[in-house]
Design a protein around this nucleic acid. Structure first.
Lengths: 346, 346
DNA sequence: CCCGGCGGCGAGAGCGCTCTCGCCGCGGCG
DNA sequence: CGCCGCGGCGAGAGCGCTCTCGCCGCCGGG
């Protein structure tokens, strides 16, 4: 009973149906050229025996694996502090399974892991890779490019100026930041501060750029660097308040920092939004709804981002490995729109 | 240049080193029986050619895949609302990669997915499975058991009464609940309420049981069912306050509900902890630290839980598929300890 | 000096599949 | 009525690896 049943092979199915292996293979893989009565007999044999193709054997000859690696290079910071990651993964998963592809997850922490990942990718276990690497000095993207696998990045990669044709999906960080700041202006605020995220990440840089787009030459005293954590937001807010006690609005680089900023404002006796209006970024739930007051923020569709990354990659895989360098212009980088969500804080 | 380099095979390495395939295989797989000068020559050939074994070919004959499926059956609810999932995954990932195993992630949403997962597992792509399924009516655990793969569950599965020898790792929900309630008693509180989680999940049931262990026959009016969301915590707290305006403490089934309860208490003008002491569960960061006041709560080591699940599974895999029914008694279920974290709310 | 044993290495089969060929039978056209 | 063409199916090679054998050479003992 506990004996692992010897899985039936193509051969066995062929024998039972009284046909050749080739014919069974044709039926199983849905290629035409098998006439109906025969095909039906094969199908019956397949599920009488409970036949399931051996993927290893198949991969050995087709050189396809129907599997995609998802590489996340983000040990300590935001990815694990918030539900971002899970959402993205979910989007990716949906798209991949819809196309019968598996998701192999690789989490990396340090340099040793990089070598491991590189080896894994070179090992040809997967047909492509989706990569999340947010930091500027990360050697991972380079390693991966070198492995020669079709790849799509999550978030605009850093060295984008140089290498071209790098596929990525990003949210409209810059545009979202502009929307946020314009909203504050529309409320009549004029002394608007910005708490940046960790500036070694493109998302933080892009949001800062958006802020500058609208504020055109802001007082440097109104910009303070954070690192996307709530604690950094609180600290930054305090610093801003001592430098510019007259500020009347803050655009924080993400909701976590906005939450930190709210505490600092409360401690300093500032009312939100009456004295100081606050806008966040991400619409990270449940944080954004739970703050006091609830956050006005810029929402990005995280799950859609994941889905899109997967879709892009699968498309590449379908039309053969060659990314078709002449290919469609829209393909190299895709930027998803964002929307401003108005709650009580601004 | 864009030509995908034909990966070198064992054959090629053998030719270059002037030995047979068997010898190269021996060296690559670290089995002894190859004398030093020869072994060295092989090793040189391997990295001159950049040889990486073809996993598909290897699996075909060894019937091992060095891959483990992680199945998460939790679309909407807590897993995606909080960083739980990511933490657990990280623990799992660490342990798996330490043993050169890959992590194949399967997220399921609905019944169709179940069939897909069952097929995948039956397809023999992976050597074992780690399963997270929290709901009582989930058919998934049954399907998986039937696939005959070595499996470890995250959280005590539901039908535990029946089937025996089911491997799982759980946190000490009941003991943690007892600690929480005893802490409230030690503070002198006597009219202690409990907001339960969704009672179709064992964790919620166990926490309720722990509450009852200590309170022995509590007033039913002091127990209100929630569903682990902040909104449900808020609603439950309101209900409790109208029923028993004299309550002086609340033990919430998780931190999210505790956060909801805090708002309800604030709205009703109750001071925390002076009028009502509040204890949560999970120590979910950053929520638990960000509430006003910060939450006293029961901490569980999520990452360790993941690591342990992986370790258990790998152990099973190592000693052949047979779980050794006589095996060590500790193996069927492992319960991880929790610790009470004191902050300002109680 | 011969023989037995043992350890190091090579030959070869085979894992379960895909895919190219080529064969065979049937239908249509000359 | 014969021939050619084509579509349906089977035979067989081969994907890259592991692992069992068995061979061969070396060493020690009789």
């Amino acid at each position: 009973m506990s004996e692992t049943a010897p899985r039936p092979t193509l051969e066995a199915v062929a024998a039972r149906a009284g046909v050749s292996r080739a014919t069974v293979s044709r039926v199983v893989n849905g290629s035409d050229g098998v006439r109906e009565p025969l095909a039906e007999r094969v199908r019956r044999a397949v599920d009488e025996l409970g036949y399931v193709p051996n993927q290893a054997a198949r991969s050995l000859v087709t050189r396809r694996h129907d599997a995609v690696a998802v590489i996340v290079a983000e040990p300590e910071t935001r990815v694990f502090a918030d539900p971002f990651f899970a959402r993205q993964l979910r989007g990716i998963s949906k798209e991949l399974t819809a196309h019968d592809n598996q998701l192999v997850l690789l989490l990396t922490e340090d340099r040793d892991d990089h070598a491991r990942v590189a080896r894994y990718l070179a090992g040809g276990h997967v047909d492509g890779a989706l990569v999340f690497s947010l930091h500027v000095d990360d050697p991972l993207p380079g390693l991966i490019q070198r492995a020669g696998l079709p790849t799509v990045f999550g978030g605009r990669p850093h060295w984008n100026g140089g290498e071209d044709g790098v596929r990525y999906v990003d949210t409209d960080n810059r545009g979202g930041a502009r929307d946020a700041v314009r909203h504050l202006l529309a409320l009549g605020r004029r002394r608007i501060a910005h708490i940046t995220g960790a500036l070694d990440q493109t998302s933080a840089v892009d949001r800062l750029d958006g802020f500058r787009d609208v504020m055109a030459d802001p007082d440097p005293a109104l910009v303070e660097e954070g690192d996307f954590t709530a604690a950094s937001g609180e600290r930054a807010m305090r610093a801003l308040l001592t430098r510019r006690a007259d500020l009347d609005a803050v655009f924080a680089g993400n909701d976590l920092m906005a939450a930190g900023a709210l505490r600092a404002l409360r401690d300093h006796g500032r009312r939100v939004p009456e004295d100081v209006a606050v806008v966040g970024f991400d619409d990270m739930l449940p944080i954004a709804e739970q703050t006091e007051p609830p956050l006005t923020t810029v929402r990005q569709d995280i799950e859609e981002m994941g889905r899109l990354m997967a879709r892009l990659l699968l498309r590449d895989l379908d039309r053969g490995a060659e990314p078709d360098q002449a290919g469609d212009p829209a393909a190299s980088g895709v930027v998803l729109p964002v929307t401003l969500v108005r709650r009580a804080s601004a």
